[in-house]
Amino acid sequence: MTSLNAKPTIFINPAKCIGCKHCEIACAVEHSQSKDLFSAIFEEPLPLPRIHILPMGAYNVPMNCRHCNDAPCVEVCPTGALYHDDDGAVMITPEKCIGCKMCAIVCPFGIPEFDALNGVMFKCDMCPDRRAEGRPPACVEACKTGALQFGTIDEIVANVRKETAEKIIKLKEGEYEEEYNGWDLFRSMNAEIIRINEGESK
């Protein structure tokens, strides 16, 4: 097993999620038999996504497996169907799964879902085939806004540190300019509409 810090995972940033749901489609295609969109939509059973975009007022939140280090689902699984693989991804062995749903009960993120057709649980597996080829998971590749990022915790926080440091210097030098951001503008207007619809404005 690699060190905990070196394990890659999928990071989410709701501020950048514009709700296009491309990640959901890419995930379903990746978990189809054909791995091809135009064929996948005709498959039986239809492939299902393991990531979900939740509209939360003016924000959209991508919800997928956090692949916890101390994963309650792995702890509670009575048959050992759930386990960490070498990359630290939480995986399911369907053959061992008895569909008791204990993993779903203990998951604080509501991630494991029940596949009624096969009577087993399914969840994000961080795309093992892609990882083997050194490619990012399907959802991350599909996300063009940076709402989903794939990397190690060290890489992610290092990037945030760097961006913020740059901003601090620019602010100090008086060079910092808030960039035009159509989505934030839209979201602020949308927040206003939500406020109006939920009650009286002003």
Partner: peptide
Amino acid sequence: QQPQCGYGLLGV
């Protein structure tokens, strides 16, 4: 239909 696609909402 929520969330509606941000690319469409922004026209891009």
